[in-house]
């Protein structure tokens, strides 16, 4: 036989256990890792270090794209800049106008909440994170951003963009974080129909442009074009941020539930960056609610769990989240 084949009959490493044994050991190690990772609490640190270790690869892959962006920013024409400037000025004027009203509304809101001893849950601090142009798993709606635990990003943090709710942080490394978008099939976000106050859940479908609202009863008041906002239940997302616009509403008489699709308002597949927000996500405890209800028994609408005033229809429907505590007779009903 040829000398090459003679060589190959030696064990692969000249010392050490046989190939089969090493397969068994490594496979067992992989299985152990998977189990530990699936339980999630054990190896967060390992995850963090690994993601830091592979970050250079992400960075290098992203580099041409960001270099191109930087170059095109440097090389924009004077005319282009003037045009953009004009556009931004107009936009700014409009936004300032709206802000004037917002300031007074916010103060009023604050006063009302103080009167109810509730906590104002608006975004307090935000951080702009750039989305790296890398492809993660094509069958899941996830992105990688360039901010991590060094900037105090944490798991479960809400991510928004200029037009709506984007998603939440799923894993955090030292310098990067993975965000699961609201359109991921594994993601669901508690929402509220802005017009009627009906609460439900919006579930991702695996496509950037589509959410489903599968848990609405057939007689729910919902029409095409309704705005869907975050309800703040669950404490991950701040309440009241726009999530989606209702698309098709299918009422099948033979089904007990509606089939409602909605289009996310955030530019899920086009955003170059997202906003990570910190807000006081202390979910109001039933006790808080009870004391608020007792101290202010005049307001019949006040006691929904998330502290967002809702109209009669929602307050009147049987809401399982309401405190079933016999000592709170005045809690909204």
């Amino acid at each position: 036989m040829s000398p090459i084949q003679d060589q190959d009959h030696r064990p692969l490493l000249l010392e050490g256990p046989s190939l089969g044994l090493r397969l068994a050991i490594l496979a067992a190690a992989a299985v152990a890792l998977m189990v530990a990772d699936h339980q999630q609490q054990y190896i967060g640190v390992v995850r963090g270090w690994l993601s830091a270790a592979v970050y250079p690869v992400h960075w290098i892959v992203d580099a041409p794209g960001s270099a191109w962006r930087a170059a095109s920013e440097t090389l924009t024409t004077r005319r282009g800049l003037t045009e953009e400037n004009d556009r931004l000025k107009a936009e700014n004027r409009e936004i300032r106008l709206r802000l004037l009203r917002f300031d007074s509304l916010e103060q009023e809101n604050q006063r009302l909440r103080e009167a109810r001893a509730g906590s104002a849950r608006v975004a307090e601090r935000s951080l702009v994170a750039e989305i790296l142009r890398v492809d993660l798993d094509p069958y899941r709606q996830r992105v990688l951003v360039n901010k991590g635990s060094r900037e105090d990003v944490f798991v479960g943090q809400a991510a928004l963009d200029a037009t709506g709710v984007f998603g939440q942080v799923m894993r955090v490394g030292p310098v990067s974080a993975e965000i699961i978008m609201i359109s991921d099939p594994d993601h669901a976000i508690p929402v509220q129909i802005n017009r009627t106050g009906v609460r439900t859940i919006a579930v991702g479908q695996g496509q950037a442009g589509n959410l489903m609202l599968p848990y609405l009863p057939r007689n729910a008041d919902i029409v095409e074009g309704d705005l869907v906002v975050s309800s703040g239940l669950g404490g991950v997302f701040p309440p009241g941020y726009p999530v989606a616009k209702v698309g098709e509403v299918r009422r099948d008489p033979s089904e007990p539930l509606l089939s409602v699709s909605a289009a996310p308002l955030a530019q899920l597949d086009r955003d170059p960056e997202v906003l990570l927000v910190w807000f006081d996500n202390r979910v109001m405890e039933p006790d808080d609610e009870a004391s608020a209800g007792q101290s202010l028994q005049v307001d019949p609408h006040a006691a929904t769990l998330e502290g967002v005033p809702v109209p009669d229809t929602a307050a009147a429907e049987p809401a399982p989240e309401l405190p079933a505590d016999p000592t709170t007779p005045a809690a909204g009903n």
């Binding site: 692969l12 190939l19 397969l23 490594l26 998977m34 993601s51 270790a53 993660l136």
Partner: peptide, 22 residues
């Protein structure tokens, strides 16, 4: 050999945010 395969696999998992060890 195998250790290299295992290490590269782990790198894919970390890179793509998949279940570690898959």
């Amino acid at each position: 050999g195998l250790l290299m395969a295992w290490g590269s696999g782990l790198a894919i998992d970390a890179l793509h945010g998949m279940l570690l060890g898959q």
